[in-house]
Computed example of a mutant assay.
Amino acid sequence: MLPDLPPPAVDVLYDPLPYESRLDARPVSQVDLVVIHCTEVPDLARSRRFGEEVLYPASGTGNSGHYYVDRDGSLHQYVSAGRTAHHTRGYNPRSVGIELVNTGRYPNWLDSRHQAMDEPYTDAQIASLIALLQRLRADLPALRFIAGHEDLDTTTVEATDDASVQVHRKRDPGPLFPWRQVLDAVPLQRLQP
């Protein structure tokens, strides 16, 4: 058995969303899950713009993850772990969302002819993700589980090009995400309801 090593230092640029203070506060002791996403847009700047959009007028908030990992491995935090971000239906109060910048199915997310997710994640992204997960494991005492967005949201919808075809609403992080590498490096259990 390997000795417990201190988690690595992680450089994170904290740049809270304008509405972060309006997101529900929560004790970090209830966070037991990390959900891995891909942005499904071309770059971090566009991801940020999507995150800033107010989609829920009653609360003045929108959809975003807590952390974003760019292709160069840089880490960005848009929502503190003590706030509930909107990233995975039904799991937000108990989870931290981590978004990896990746085009995914962009710009034809629900077109049945464009369901391949063929952009590989970079080595720098995966190294930063692993370091972040190790840090979160040390900082969040209840953290035990990890899942992909596609594991938790299995909803199908009509394809935008053909209403007779059903496609998955969410497919991220997708088939090129290196689950084995991540799970070998971080002692989290994959949650698949």
Results as ranks from 00 to 15, higher is better:
Val157Pro: 05
Asp72Gly: 11
Ser80Ala: 14
Arg94Gly: 01
Ala142Tyr: 07
Thr84Ile: 15
Ser74Tyr: 09
Gln77Phe: 09
Asp118Ser: 15
Thr156Ala: 06
Leu152Arg: 03
Thr84Leu: 04
Asp118Val: 15
Ala81Ile: 14
Ser95Pro: 00
Asp161Gly: 05
Ala116Glu: 15
Thr155Pro: 02
Ala138Pro: 00
Pro120Asp: 08
Asp139Val: 10
Thr155Cys: 12
Ala85Ile: 04
Val165Asn: 02
His87Gln: 04
His87Gly: 00
Ala81Gln: 14
Ala124Asp: 03
Arg105Cys: 02
Pro93Glu: 06
Gly104Ile: 08
Phe145Met: 02
Ser95Glu: 00
Ala147Glu: 03
Glu158Trp: 05
Leu129Asn: 01
Asp162Val: 14
Leu133Tyr: 10
Tyr78Glu: 15
Tyr78Ser: 11
Asp111Thr: 11
Tyr91Val: 11
Arg94Val: 04
Gly73Ile: 09
Ala116Tyr: 13
Tyr91Gln: 08
Ile98Ala: 04
Thr88Tyr: 02
Ala142Trp: 07
Ala163Tyr: 03
Leu140His: 05
Ile98Trp: 11
Gln115Lys: 13
Gly90Leu: 09
His149Ser: 13
Gln134Pro: 00
Ala138Trp: 15
Gln77Gly: 03
Leu75Tyr: 08
Tyr78Thr: 14
Leu133Phe: 15
His149Asn: 06
Leu140Ile: 08
Ala131Gln: 09
Gln134Val: 07
Ser74Asn: 05
Asn92Pro: 00
Ser95His: 00
Asn92Leu: 05
Leu75Thr: 04
Ala138Cys: 05
Leu140Val: 07
Thr154Pro: 01
Gln125His: 08
Gln77Tyr: 06
Val157Asn: 13
Asn108Ile: 03
Val96Lys: 06
Pro120Ile: 12
Thr122Asn: 12
Val96Gln: 13
Leu132Pro: 01
Arg137Tyr: 09
Asp123Cys: 07
Gly148Tyr: 11
Asp123Tyr: 07
Ile146Gly: 00
Arg135Thr: 07
Arg137Gly: 02
His149Tyr: 15
Ser164Arg: 14
Leu110Met: 07
Gln77Thr: 05
Thr103Phe: 11
Glu99Trp: 15
Glu158Asp: 03
Leu100Tyr: 06
Ala81Asn: 10
Ser74Leu: 10
Val165Lys: 11
His114Trp: 07
Thr88Arg: 10
Ala163His: 03
Val101Tyr: 08
Arg83Asn: 01
Ser128Asp: 02
Glu158Tyr: 06
Leu136Tyr: 04
Ala127Met: 05
Gly104Lys: 08
Gly148Leu: 05
Ala127Ile: 12
Tyr91Lys: 12
Leu132Phe: 05
Val79Lys: 02
Ser164Glu: 12
Ala81Ser: 14
Leu152Glu: 06
Val79Ser: 08
Leu152Trp: 09
Asp151Leu: 15
Gln77Trp: 08
Gly73Leu: 05
Gly104Phe: 04
Ile146Ala: 03
Arg137Glu: 10
Leu143Gln: 09
Trp109Asn: 06
Thr122Phe: 12
Pro107Phe: 12
Val165Arg: 13
Thr155Ile: 12
Gly73Asn: 05
Gly148Asn: 02
Arg113Pro: 05
Asp139Cys: 09
Leu129Glu: 01
